[in-house]
């Protein structure tokens, strides 16, 4: 089952590289959104692999609440360009 995690790490490295090399802030935000989804899915997979219910709850909470912070940040950045 560990091949799942290895493939997920490879998929996770692509947006990290993108966030590092791109200078446009919205491209960075896009990479951030992708990383946020991918890490929470990875937490869910780890919880299923280890059969740990508690980690699974944390993964779902991060998945559903973490995106809200991203949207708030997007709106602040948008207002920034407006002023």
């Amino acid at each position: 089952m560990n091949w799942i995690l290895v493939a997920m790490i490879i998929a996770l490295c692509i947006p990290i590289y993108e966030a590092w090399q791109d200078e446009d802030i919205w491209q960075k935000m896009l990479a951030f959104g992708s990383i946020a989804t991918k890490t929470s899915i990875m937490i869910l997979v780890i919880s299923v692999l280890r059969d740990d219910w508690m980690i699974g709850v944390v993964g779902v909470l991060i998945l559903s609440v973490g995106n809200a912070g991203l949207m708030l940040l997007a709106h602040v950045l948008r207002r920034l360009n407006q002023l």
């Binding site: 919205w26 896009l30 998945l63 559903s64 997007a74 950045l77």
Partner: peptide, 14 residues
């Protein structure tokens, strides 16, 4: 739900 909404918000804000 969230990923769809996030896509809309990012497109709207950018």
């Amino acid at each position: 739900i969230w990923n769809t909404v996030l896509g809309y918000v990012l497109a709207y804000c950018s």
